[in-house]
Structures are given as structure tokens and as C-alpha cells.
């Protein structure tokens, strides 16, 4: 049998233990082992950003990380964004600005935007464009995503006041 390793991770606040092959990708672990299918695989070679999740506070491409590398980590996925089925302000803003079409890049885009707004709560349009340049969207042409992130920043500023 292939080499197996016991790992413990916390995903969206819940603890999980599993025994996984060393070659198992974090993306496949989240999707196939934990059933968290909100994280999508677009290119599987680290360019498109659809599989972006937050690992110990920083975004990673879960197609480029092995599950065993996440042992002991705190992970956040798109499923962790809403609380008690209440949308996060980012989700509200994406809905109101139509910052999505097919929805496939959206979870990765939300994770990147979440991280970015922690770093820069009041960004300019140019800063947003640069911040999401590592996440491909084939539908929107990005403009409404940029508007949504600006709008989310404003909502979050109000919320934290």
C-alpha cells in the first residue's frame, strides 16, 4: 500500500483527523475526503487560482499543496465565509454587484479578496486589480469583481465601526 500519514487539520473551525496518501493534494482532500466541494479545481497547475484556500492565514493554491503539508493547520474555505447562513459582506457585495457569472472561480476569488481586505481594508481600484491578478475569471472581465471588492471594503468598514 502507498505511504499513508495521519494528519489533523482544522477546517472552518471544525477539527478533522484523517489518514492520507502523501501524494494526495489538499484540494482533493478537501473535496473528496471532507466533502467540501466549494473549492474548485480549474487548471491543477497553480495558475488559475480557482482552488485558493486560506492556510494559517495566508492564501495558497490547494492544487499545489499536499494534504500532509497541511497537518496541524487552520484552513478556511469558501464554506467558512458565511456564518449561520448569513452572507459575509464580501458575498453580499458580490451578489449586489453581480461579481460572478458561472461561479467557478468565485470561491477562490472570495478567498483572495478576504485575505486582501485584511491587509488593505481601503484599497483603490488599481490595488484590487493587482491583488486579484493571480485569480483567473473567464466570465466577468473582472470589472464587477473589482466593484464588488470595493463595495465589500466599504461594508466591512461600516461593520467594524
Amino acid at each position: 500500500m502507498a505511504d499513508m500519514h495521519a494528519i489533523r487539520v482544522t477546517v472552518n473551525g471544525l477539527p478533522y483527523e484523517a489518514t492520507v496518501e502523501s501524494r494526495l493534494l489538499l484540494a482533493d482532500f478537501l473535496r473528496d475526503h471532507l466533502g467540501l466541494v466549494g473549492t474548485h479545481l480549474g487548471c491543477e497547475h497553480g495558475v488559475c487560482g480557482a482552488c485558493t484556500v486560506i492556510l494559517n492565514g495566508r492564501t495558497v493554491r490547494s492544487c499545489l499543496v499536499f494534504a500532509v503539508q497541511a497537518d496541524g493547520a487552520q484552513i478556511m474555505t469558501v464554506e467558512g465565509l458565511a456564518r449561520d447562513s448569513q452572507f459575509h459582506p464580501l458575498q453580499e457585495a458580490f451578489r449586489d454587484k453581480q461579481g460572478l457569472q458561472c461561479g467557478f472561480c468565485t470561491p477562490g476569488m472570495l478567498m483572495r479578496a478576504y485575505e486582501f481586505l485584511q491587509e488593505n481594508p481601503n484599497p483603490t481600484e488599481e490595488e484590487i486589480r493587482e491583488a486579484i491578478a493571480g485569480n483567473l475569471c473567464r466570465c466577468t472581465g473582472y470589472q464587477f469583481i473589482v466593484e464588488a471588492i470595493q463595495d465589500a471594503a466599504a461594508r466591512m468598514a461600516v461593520a467594524s465601526r
Partner: peptide
């Protein structure tokens, strides 16, 4: 949009 924003798109690969 709401289901897509929650990661519940129900794509075929899911």
C-alpha cells in the same frame, strides 16, 4: 448567485 457564493454550485464534478 446565492448558491454559487456559498460554494454550492452543484457542478458535475461535485
Amino acid at each position: 448567485d446565492p448558491r454559487l457564493l456559498l460554494g454550492r454550485g452543484e457542478y458535475v464534478t461535485d
